[in-house]
């Protein structure tokens, strides 16, 4: 049975090659990159100013923050057609899908609010007041805690997903941008763009456990600005986009030391792995392209032109 299944997958693979979906903030489009050919195969129109992008668990739907349309769009990834819009609150920038595959936690950048939307009933089920310019969104692997980071308030807000109340506020360095839990849920990482650091929290106690600094040779520390980051499959390494320093840092997630810096496009922002996590795709806002990084070799292997101001990235198997 198993060889047959493998054969079927092999047969099917040319038709369903994995893809990276990239939102182009200033083009109102998504560029779809074929992971085998590393070319853009489709450009799909979206609402205004698309930024955050994420797929449902079964990849049958893709959610897109259309910030200036004040909505989250739900798209059929096969056809590229918008199925419907979700109420999102004003100016949705970034979001995270709860492990229940149903609730979207949305940062409303202009409104100092986190909105929780039920994707089935298409209704807003809660709005939580957070700090000014919320952006980074994360949810713990067990689904119990959602995090919103606020750029101007410089905090990570810890939200209990049952009560939908804030249970803690922890200060980080200036202008936090992105938050991620480690896969086992024990650590929360928060990047601070202007502070130039990543703060690692112990989730159980909310206490600060470590702080990561970055230093790119030949670039003033002020311009080394950590934004998006992702962990490798084994959780031993984190790749951190460093904004206008045009580099991605490779961080040892156990010792918190930076092991390498990889030169990529200009103002590197977010990133997504290929399904097997062998390739990493970074969105480079100012140069309008995507850099492909060979994860094992820690080398940039290709630059792919996409639309204007690529922002978010997500893979589709």
């Amino acid at each position: 049975m198993k060889p047959l299944a493998t054969a079927l997958i092999l047969l099917a693979s040319p038709l369903t090659a994995a893809e990276i979906w990239v939102t182009n903030e200033k083009d109102d489009t998504i560029s779809v990159i074929d992971i085998d050919t590393l070319d853009v195969t489709r450009t799909i129109p979206t609402g205004e100013r698309p930024r955050g992008i994420t797929f449902s668990k079964d990849f049958s739907r893709v959610y897109i923050c259309a910030s200036n349309s004040d909505t989250v769009q739900v798209m059929d990834p096969e056809t590229g057609k918008i199925l419907h819009d979700l109420p999102s609150g004003e100016d949705p920038e970034q979001f995270v899908l709860h492990p229940n595959d149903r609730h979207l936690y949305i940062a409303n950048e202009d409104d100092a609010v986190t909105t929780v939307v039920d994707t089935e009933t298409r209704k807003v089920i809660a709005q939580i007041n957070v700090g000014i310019e919320p952006e980074g969104m994360a949810v713990s692997p067990d689904g119990k805690i959602a995090i919103t980071t606020s750029e101007t308030t410089n905090m990570a807000h810890w939200i209990d997903t049952d009560t939908r109340q804030i249970v803690a506020n922890t200060l980080v360095d200036a202008r936090p941008r992105h938050a991620e839990f480690t896969a086992n849920g024990s650590e929360l990482w928060v990047s601070s763009e202007i502070g130039g650091t990543i703060t690692v929290f112990d989730v159980a106690t909310h206490a600060e456990k470590a702080k990561l600094d970055f230093a790119v040779k030949g670039v003033h520390p002020d311009r080394v600005q950590p934004v998006g980051f992702e962990f490798t499959e084994d959780e031993k390494t984190a790749f951190v986009a460093l904004g206008p320093s045009n580099h991605v840092a490779v961080v040892n997630a156990e010792t918190y030391e930076v092991e390498d810096y990889i030169l990529v496009g200009r103002r590197v922002w977010h990133m997504a792995f290929s399904p097997d996590k062998s390739l990493l795709f970074t969105t480079n806002g100012v140069s309008g392209d995507v850099t492909v990084i060979d994860v094992a070799k820690r080398e940039a292997i290709k630059t792919i032109k996409v639309g204007r101001f690529p922002w978010g990235a997500a893979f589709r198997p």
Partner: peptide, 11 residues
């Protein structure tokens, strides 16, 4: 002030 009040509200 509005910015300070928001941050201060949490602290």
């Amino acid at each position: 002030l509005a910015g300070n009040l928001t941050t201060g509200g949490f602290l």
